Simulated assay, not measured.
Amino acid sequence: MTDKPDSEQIDDIIAQLSGWKHDAYVALRSAIRAGDPDAVEVVKYKKPSKPEGVAFWTHDGDLCFIDVLKNTVRLTFSKGARLPADALFNTRLDSKVVRAVDFAEGSRVDEAAVAAVVRQAVELNTAG
């Protein structure tokens, strides 16, 4: 257990990364913040296999989270299945709840597109 604020714990998660995974994570965090400057950063799901936890962004409920997998950095929108269809999503397409986009080595993060989907997610959460 740590006494650090969640945003500093996310800084620590980023500091553990290198290369393209680090760059993708930083770009995604920047895009999320641009899409909703009022989003709250929260670290959830700390467990022995992932003691650092998973970074979430919330605004009247969960918006999205970033998870680092073996070959990708995945941005998952918690209510993605209810968001307008968007070319950004490339995984979890048959889920009834979430939608995600995987970024692999060599992928470019379209920060404007991510920020736009974040704004859509905020609208969905705040609509009730």
Rank of each mutant, 00 (worst) to 15 (best):
M1E: 14
D3E: 14
D3Q: 11
P5R: 05
E8A: 09
Q9M: 07
I10M: 10
D11K: 09
I13D: 02
L17R: 06
S18H: 04
S18Y: 02
G19R: 05
G19V: 05
K21Q: 14
A24I: 00
Y25Q: 08
Y25V: 15
V26I: 03
A27F: 02
A27G: 06
S30I: 03
G35E: 01
V40G: 00
E41M: 01
Y45M: 00
K47E: 07
P48S: 15
P51E: 02
P51A: 12
E52F: 04
F56E: 03
W57S: 10
T58W: 05
T58S: 12
H59C: 10
H59N: 15
D60P: 00
G61H: 09
L63P: 06
I66W: 05
D67V: 15
D67T: 15
V68L: 00
V68R: 06
N71W: 01
N71G: 10
T72V: 14
T72N: 15
V73G: 00
L75V: 11
F77I: 10
F77M: 12
F77H: 08
K79I: 08
G80F: 06
G80Y: 02
R82M: 10
R82E: 12
P84T: 12
A85H: 14
D86L: 08
L88V: 12
F89L: 10
N90V: 09
N90P: 05
T91F: 08
R92N: 13
R92T: 11
L93E: 13
L93I: 12
D94N: 06
V98F: 06
V98I: 15
V98D: 10
R99F: 02
V101I: 13
E105V: 03
S107N: 09
E111I: 01
A112T: 13
A112N: 10
V114I: 06
A115L: 04
A115H: 02
A115Y: 01
A116I: 01
A116R: 15
V117H: 03
V118G: 03
V118I: 14
R119G: 12
Q120L: 08
Q120M: 09
A121C: 10
V122E: 03
E123K: 10
E123A: 14
L124N: 06
N125H: 12
T126D: 07
